[in-house]
């Protein structure tokens, strides 16, 4: 693994990465480094390309140009088998959990273990119980995903993501659609996993409440480009008007949603 100028180990590295969909540029020449053991938050408005960036990092989509390296391996050039090997070292929590509907909670969490290890059934059952206790979901083993709430599904999704003891966990909007309390619990879980299990976390979110609670470093992304990368304090005190508008959620500023001539109020004749 390579190191940066401060001697920190770089676990994920993006260099000049670009991606277009149907002629539309989503990611434009992004270069980023994620350090080993940190919680790295990618924040930005809806449609800014942050989820695409996450999918580029974990190899679900391939970039049109640039290099994505995980632990020093360029995943854009890996074969399917090679990519699968890298994938075993990371987990992902999806926005809507993406638990398999046809499997019970226990089966969902044990799936990566059954597929990639030769562990005995009983040991797998013990590991599943441990992972479920870690996210506070013991006792729900026999339930189907449709029988539990959204917050619970997220926690089970997290248990599944950490089933193989990964080095990296990717989180796609971990707190969206959750009430503030459950959101807070999820934030604490992310933080705990990071500090207790020394997992590197990459979190995509636009929830400002959680960003400063969990982040070691933050990257602000707008229209497919990284505007600024820095520690929580650096971002909070940044003079960049985009960042200030985003943090305070103010409608006026350089991030435009409605142009004057196509505004909502005008459309209503107000």
């Amino acid at each position: 693994m390579s190191h940066n100028e401060h001697g920190k180990e770089i676990i994920i590295s993006l260099k000049n990465v670009g991606k277009s969909f149907e002629g539309r540029r989503i990611i434009n020449d992004v270069s980023l480094d994620v350090y080993c053991g940190e919680t790295f938050v990618i924040m930005g408005c809806s449609g800014s390309g942050k989820s695409t960036l996450l999918r580029l990092m974990n190899g679900i989509i391939k970039p049109d140009k640039g290099v994505v390296s995980i632990k020093g391996k360029d995943i854009t050039r890996l074969s399917v088998e090679g990519l699968d090997e890298v994938r075993k070292s990371f987990g992902m929590l999806f926005q809507y959990s993406a638990l398999l509907d046809s499997l019970r909670v226990e089966e969902n969490v044990s799936l990566p273990l059954k597929e990639h290890t030769k562990l005995d059934e009983n040991i797998i059952r013990i590991i599943v119980k441990m992972k479920l206790s870690l996210v506070g979901m013991r006792g729900f083993e026999e339930y189907y995903p449709a029988q539990i709430s959204g917050g619970m599904r997220k926690r089970v999704g997290l248990a599944r993501a950490i089933a193989l003891d990964p080095d990296i966990v990717f989180y796609d909007e971990p707190t969206s659609g959750l009430d503030p309390v459950v959101g807070g619990v999820t934030d604490k879980l992310i933080r705990d996993l990071s500090t207790k299990l020394l997992i590197t976390s990459v979190v995509v979110t636009h929830n400002m409440q959680s960003v400063f609670k969990i982040a070691d470093r933050i990257a602000m992304i707008h229209k497919g480009e990284v505007i600024e990368v820095g520690t929580s304090d650096q971002i909070r005190n940044s003079q960049n008007p985009y960042i200030q508008q985003f943090i305070h959620g103010s409608p006026a500023g350089p991030i435009d949603f409605f142009t004057e001539d196509a505004g909502v109020t005008e459309g209503l004749g107000l």
């Binding site: 090997e85 999806f94 926005q95 993406a98």
Partner: peptide, 10 residues
């Protein structure tokens, strides 16, 4: 996203 989830689980 369940298919995507399977892919990320290799």
């Amino acid at each position: 996203e369940q298919i995507e989830a399977l892919e990320t689980m290799a």
